[in-house]
Amino acid sequence: MNKKPNYSYVGIALIVLVFGIIFIPKIIDRLSTGDVIRDESRSEDVSRAEKEVNKKSYKSDLVYIPNANGGKKKVPSFSFTNQLGQTITNKDYLGKVYVIEFFFTTCPTICPRMNRNLVEIQNEFKDFENFGVASFTITPDVDTPEVLKAYAEKYGITNPNWHLMTGNEEEIYKLANEGFYLYTAKNDEIIDGFEHSGNFALIDKEGFIRSRLKSPDNPLIYYNGIVSEEEGEDDEGIPQEITILKEDIAKLLKE
């Protein structure tokens, strides 16, 4: 006698078969490629954590900038006249943390912005006798000590270690281009007749150029001196670096 098939078991078998055909290959594929949701979540968390650790570690210490021979790049020897008619050399800055800029008093574009930022930094560290600024004019024929003094008064420069210096033009350009690699040149085709870097260099108490790292093997070297903290970024989306410069000055003052 023939028995009637049990349709409930047949239905379950069909469901299992369909599930296996549709879903099991997908699961196997995801396992073989490591593409599993739980693993994705954990991997993303680990990746984020690693990035945060790296970010903190490579930005926590200030590195030395290498020179052409692989040693530590140091401020070259210089001797110029400041706004008070005094002779100032690199030795006057030993034992001090200071910022270097190249500018000129008749500059109508970036120099006023740079020096307003430096005055803000000056005021931030007004209680530190071992903080200073070294400003070198690239138009020494125009920027006499008297002119530099008037400029200092106009911008509120009060730090006794902030020297605005003038002197031999060839020596100043050599100091900028060869000593610091801060580009400076005459150019009659632009509005003010000169081209120069809008960056600041940060110098430690022993006269070495210092900087934080942008990535584990990539030093920032110089700090954008044009964009202010209030602006946040310029029209091209370049962020301000005055905040990090202040942070790094504070670190060097503690060394």
Rank of each mutant, 00 (worst) to 15 (best):
P112H: 02
V16K: 03
D188F: 04
P140Q: 03
E247A: 15
Q83P: 06
D143C: 00
D45N: 14
T158H: 12
V53I: 10
F23V: 14
K214M: 12
V99T: 05
V53F: 09
V142M: 11
V46P: 06
D204F: 05
I28M: 13
K72W: 10
N187W: 05
C111P: 08
E50F: 15
L94G: 13
E241I: 15
G20P: 07
D45A: 12
L14N: 08
T137N: 00
N69H: 14
P160Q: 02
L213M: 11
T109E: 14
N218T: 14
E241F: 08
K51C: 02
Y98K: 02
R212K: 14
I100V: 13
I209N: 09
Y222A: 09
E52H: 01
L164V: 03
S32E: 07
E124G: 13
N177Q: 01
V99L: 03
Q122K: 04
G237T: 12
L182Q: 12
T139F: 07
V97I: 10
I28Q: 09
R210K: 15
D143E: 01
E129H: 14
V36S: 06
V53K: 14
F180H: 00
I27Q: 13
I100G: 06
I100E: 10
P239Y: 03
Q86P: 07
N224L: 04
D143K: 00
G179S: 01
R42Q: 12
N6W: 10
M165N: 08
L182D: 01
L148W: 10
F125I: 08
N199Y: 14
D248K: 02
E171S: 08
S79W: 01
K4L: 10
K126A: 15
T33F: 09
F136H: 01
E231M: 07
S41E: 09
T106A: 14
E124W: 06
K96F: 07
V36N: 08
P5W: 15
W162Y: 04
Y9K: 13
P108A: 01
C107M: 00
D45P: 07
T137V: 00
G95P: 05
L182E: 04
S32G: 10
A49M: 15
D204Q: 04
I209W: 06
I203M: 13
F131S: 02
Y223K: 02
I226L: 11
G71V: 10
N69R: 12
V227W: 02
S215K: 11
G167Q: 01
P5I: 10
N67F: 07
D35F: 02
G156S: 11
P216C: 04
N69S: 13
L94M: 09
G232N: 04
Y151N: 04
Q83E: 06
D143Y: 00
L252G: 06
K55M: 14
G20V: 13
T184N: 09
K254P: 06
I65P: 03
E233V: 13
E124S: 07
P76R: 02
I138E: 00
L182H: 01
N161S: 01
